[in-house]
Each structure stands twice: as structure tokens, then as C-alpha cells.
Write a protein that binds this DNA or RNA. Sequence first.
RNA 1: GGCGCUAUCGUCUAGGGGUUAGGACGUGAGAUUCUCAAUCUUAAAACACGGGUUCGAUUCCCGUUAGCGCUACCA
Length: 486
Amino acid sequence: MTSSSQSTRVRFAPSPTGYLHVGGARTALFSWLFARHTGGTFVLRIEDTDFERSSADMVTGILEGMRWLGMDWDEGPFFQSQRLELYAQTASKLVECGHAYHCFCTREELEARRSSATEAGVVPRYDGRCRTVSITDAKARIAAGERAIVRFMVPREGVTVFQDGVFGRIEFANAELEDFVLLRSDGIPTYHLSVVADDLDMRMTHIIRGADHLSNTPKQVLLYQALGASLPVFAHLPLILGPDKTRLSKRHGATSVMAYKEMGIVPEAFRNFLALLGWSPGDAAKQVGAPDREIFSTEELIQIFSLDGIAHSNAVFNNEKLAWYNTEYIRAYDPSRLLPLIEEEWKAVNYRPTRSREDVLAAITLLQPRTRNLKDFASTFLAYFGDQFKMDEAAAKKFLSDAAVRTMLGELGDRSAALGDFSEASTEELLRCYAAEKGIKAGALINGARVALTGQAVAPSLFAVMLCLGQSTVASRLKAAAALIV
RNA sequence: GGCGCUAUCGUCUAGGGGUUAGGACGUGAGAUUCUCAAUCUUAAAACACGGGUUCGAUUCCCGUUAGCGCUACCA
């Protein structure tokens, strides 16, 4: 453990202009994992300086998504919209010490110059013409009511270098950068100003964020230097792409993490999947057991997570692998922990189980090994939790269309009601003897019984199902089969 | 266009100057079975291309190509 003076401080700083998307969730997860691994502090900061596009609902949604994935935070959420004073002060400090200046160019002028530069085949970049306006002149003009923005004065020459925690040494020529805007004419800061002012004020030691910010970083490094501050460690995460290898977005379907919850994904599965997207433990996996394992508990992830294992290239989101993780996690759940999640699904379809909690838990245990998705419990598995369920038409057609079979199932229902000892062995014996007696293949009766009992052509072993449902339910559903019209 | 980043099976990845280039998901085949999963066995599947450096390059260097990102008074 590091001493408190050098302990890490990491933040997740989403902008509430949308829900918590997959990329944001992974950034949050890696930041959180890093903070927990190093015994540091995890701060949540909402970057809502774009009032037009930000909304309180999105903030709620982001927090909901983080909680769903099991992430907690030690400080915040802080809102940049409530910290405007800090940014204004930082901007004037920069102006006072000559690192920034007021710019009186209008949007229209800027726009015109940009388009003519583009036409001329020149890289459009602010020419720095307002650099020559003295501070006293600028103040006078502002006092007279002129609108101004504050720009950072980027050195014309030299290079800006930083050591990225993922990509290593990154160098940009200052000549490539333009005098970027710090404060807009309405006094609201731009991203570059607010992010640096806050990260400094909140004493961040590590900035973990998407690689889309890599090109922004030299500007921010320049800001740190102008402010006389030492640099945090920047660690940029490669992006997550959709199946078509373009950036994951709405057109790829669900990109909000909560959409995955709604699709029946279990949070641990999603967290595990996300953790291994663009990161791999390498040799550290040996610390927690088999080196080839891909299933890691949250505690294990915290133990073995490190910036070193972060990939340098973008990763494609793989729905099949997510589905596999979901299957694995659902199977491994303790039934009593799975039950609340299933109850949410039931609630969503207005279903209430009529069986006792013990019976419900037993049914879950029986069903777990063959569940791929939480939704199964609220659809094809309903027959295990009460008498309110739908008969799958195709299954009925396939296995119950023979009236003779239906009649036999009814008779079997009578006989099972009379069974003294109702067990897997006794029900199987009953059915097989009855089949032999009637000269019908046991399989035909088994398939028919399965549909009569579960409404589905697919189910666990029939006799395990019978035991799970109980003698009276089995008897009545089999007897009902005799009266069925297929 | 400029700048930056990246490049191992279809996908996620391990590896690293000499390896049968390893694993996972998915896919094919077989076994098992009362259905379907599961399970077990098994198979196919990759170092983008071209130059260097070197005894030797998939690994290091350069270039090409491709992909992605940034290029706002968005974040």
C-alpha cells in the first residue's frame, strides 16, 4: 500500500448528454478497478458545461448504470455547472500571466476564415491575431460592452510531450495546435479548461479516459505547464467498435448499458465481459489461479488489474461472447441471489408466481444449467412457477396432435395421482411400464408429457421436471392434456 | 487534407529474435441422451504488405496500405 500522500486519485467524468454507453462504462470500470487496486480514491464528476445538451435525467441514468455494474464512488458526484467560478478564475489567472488572451473575433469572422482556408487547401487554424491586443485595451473593450472569448496562447514552436500510461511517449508539434478557446463569450468554460482546472483542484493523479482524447491531451498538458502544475499520468483506452468495426453507436442497437439489463444480461456477466475487452491480465492471472481462465470475480479483477495489460488497438464488441458470459454467470448464481433478478423480469411482464418460495427456488436450481438469459424465466420457463403459462403451439402440434397419445397422457395422470411414492425413479418406472403395456414407445409419451407439463418442447429431464412440479400439478396437467384440442 | 494512434485465427486476446504461434467465444464433426442445452472428445481457423537489421524476424527499424481518433465559442 502506498502512503496517503501519494495515494492515487482517479475520476470518471461523463458528460450527461446521453445515457451511460458501453464505452463510458468500460472507462468507468477501468478507472474504478485501478482506484480499488491501488487503494486510492474514486471520484465521480459530471461534466455538464454544455447546458444545451445536458440533462438531469441523463445524470440519473449514468448513476443507475454505474450502480448496476457494481461500481461505487468515494467522492461526488460533483457538477461542473456548479463550479463555474473556479474556471473563470483559472482563465483570468492565465490571462494575467500572459498564457492566454482575449479574442474579439466573431463567430462569423472565424467561420469565414475557416472556409476560405479550407478552399485554399490550407489547414484552418486560428491565426492568433488578437494576441496583439493588450490586456488594458482588452479590458476597456469588454467594459465598453464588446463580447470576447479567452484563448490559450500556444507556443509557435517546440513540441509538447507526455508519457501515456498505455501508449508510452507521445509527442505533438506545437505548430499543429491552434490557440484554442478556454472561455466562451458567455463565460462558460470549454472542455479543456474545465477538465484541467478540476483535475488539478481535485488533485487527480491518473486520468483514465478514451483514446478519443489522445489528440486533446497536448493542449491540456500545455495548460498544466502554464499553470505551473505537474502532470498527472494520462492513460488512454482504445475504443470499442461495433460489429462493422466502426465506432459503437446507436445504429449498432443497444449501446446503453441499461439496455443490456433490459435484454436480460446479468450485471456480473457484463462487468466481466467489459473488463476483458481491451485489457488482459497476462501473467497476473496466475495470482488467482488458472492462467487461461476468463471468468473473474470483481475481487479478482481488483487484485490483478493493471494499466500494463491495456491493449493498444480498438476492440470489437462481441455479442456471442457476452451471451456466453451471461450463461456462465446465471448458472453459477446462488438461486436465492438470482431470484430477485428474476422477480424483476416477472414484474416487467406482470407475472406473479403461485408456488411457494421453496418450490420456486427448486425450480430455479433445475432450470439454471440451461438458462442463457434472464428473460427465459419470464417466458419459456413460466410453467415451473405457477399454472399461468402459454402452451407453445408448434410443440403441441408436434407431440400432442395424436389423440391416442393425449388420452394415454390423461390416463397416466390418473395413475400418477395414485402413486404412493412420487419420485424420479417411480415416475419413470410408471411411464415406461405404461408405455410397454400400451405398446407405444416411451419416447412418444415422454415428449408428449413434456409439452403437457411445461408447455415447451424443450425442458430438463422429464422426471426431474415431474419431481419439481409435484404430484398434484403433474396429475392435473396430464389429465388436462386428454381434453386438449390440438 | 493535416496530425496522432493502431495492425496475431471470424471476434476477444497471450506471446515474443529460434515456439508444433497458446487460450477463450463462435463454427464443423463425433460421443452421450426422453427433447434441447450442458458435458466430453475432436477439427478447421491468424502473425496486413514491402524493404531493411540479423546466422535467423511474426517479434526490432523504416515505408506502404488499411482502420480508428482529433482537427468547434461539444465533451
